[in-house]
Simulated assay, not measured.
Amino acid sequence: MTHFTHLNEKGEAQMVDVTEKEFSQRIAVASGIVQMQPNTLKMIIEGKHKKGDVLATARIAGIQAAKKTADLIPLCHPLFLTSVKLDLSPDIEANCLKIQATCKLSGQTGVEMEALTAVSVAGLTIYDMCKAVDKEMVISSIQLEEKKGGKSGNWQR
């Protein structure tokens, strides 16, 4: 049976004690999609949105979100991230923006939540900036793609 590390023997929520864990290089990659109307995507790609550069704003929001993950997710450890990168790629045929976040550090716990939070907030920022012109946008498929490092080793979707 799987053991939930965020619960103590009484079933109460707890922050996992990582004091004795070894430091290791850790990397996590997460992705997501923001589906939208073709005209909305065209406006973003051409930089003609009246609120400004949607892609640059979403990228900065995702980076900030990764750094604030411990403030947003109650049992996450505050981490010293060494790198946060966001890639926002338009897919004209699918009428969407693909978001990918890569987070890195040398530490005692993984960076999966930081990468997932970066993707989520980047998607929400795109939605916020474009909701006036496209209320039918859908943020979806937010998922971990890959993690490297730590006691559990490497994993890839």
Rank of each mutant, 00 (worst) to 15 (best):
M1Y: 04
T2W: 12
H3L: 03
H3S: 05
F4Y: 12
T5H: 03
T5A: 05
L7W: 03
N8S: 06
G11S: 02
G11W: 02
E12S: 09
A13S: 05
Q14H: 06
Q14A: 01
M15C: 06
M15G: 04
V16G: 00
E20A: 07
S24F: 07
Q25H: 14
I27L: 15
V29C: 03
V29W: 08
S31R: 05
G32S: 00
I33H: 12
I33E: 15
Q35M: 06
Q35T: 07
M36I: 02
P38K: 11
T40E: 12
L41P: 07
L41F: 08
K42N: 14
I44S: 01
I45S: 00
K50H: 11
K50S: 04
K50T: 04
K51H: 00
G52W: 09
V54K: 01
L55N: 00
L55E: 00
L55C: 02
T57G: 00
A61R: 02
A61T: 07
G62W: 02
G62H: 03
I63Y: 01
Q64H: 10
A65K: 14
A65N: 15
A65L: 13
A65R: 13
A66C: 08
A66V: 06
K67I: 09
K68R: 14
K68D: 14
T69L: 09
T69Q: 11
T69D: 15
D71W: 12
D71S: 15
I73Y: 04
I73F: 04
I73T: 09
C76I: 15
C76H: 14
H77P: 14
H77V: 15
F80Q: 13
L81S: 02
L81N: 01
T82N: 05
K85L: 04
K85P: 00
L86W: 01
D87R: 04
L88I: 02
S89A: 04
S89F: 05
P90F: 04
P90Q: 07
D91Y: 07
I92R: 15
E93L: 09
A94W: 13
A94V: 11
N95V: 07
L97Y: 04
K98W: 12
I99S: 06
I99L: 15
T102W: 11
L105W: 09
S106C: 11
T109C: 01
G110E: 12
V111P: 10
E112M: 01
M113C: 04
A115S: 13
L116S: 12
T117F: 00
T117K: 03
V119M: 05
V119R: 07
V119F: 07
Y127V: 06
Y127F: 12
Y127I: 12
D128Y: 07
M129L: 15
C130W: 13
K131C: 10
K131Q: 15
A132S: 15
V133H: 12
K135H: 13
E136S: 15
I139P: 04
I139K: 03
S140V: 08
S141A: 13
S141D: 15
I142N: 11
I142K: 09
Q143H: 09
E145S: 11
K148W: 05
K148I: 03
K151V: 00
S152K: 15
W155Q: 06
Q156R: 08
R157A: 12
R157T: 10
R157V: 11
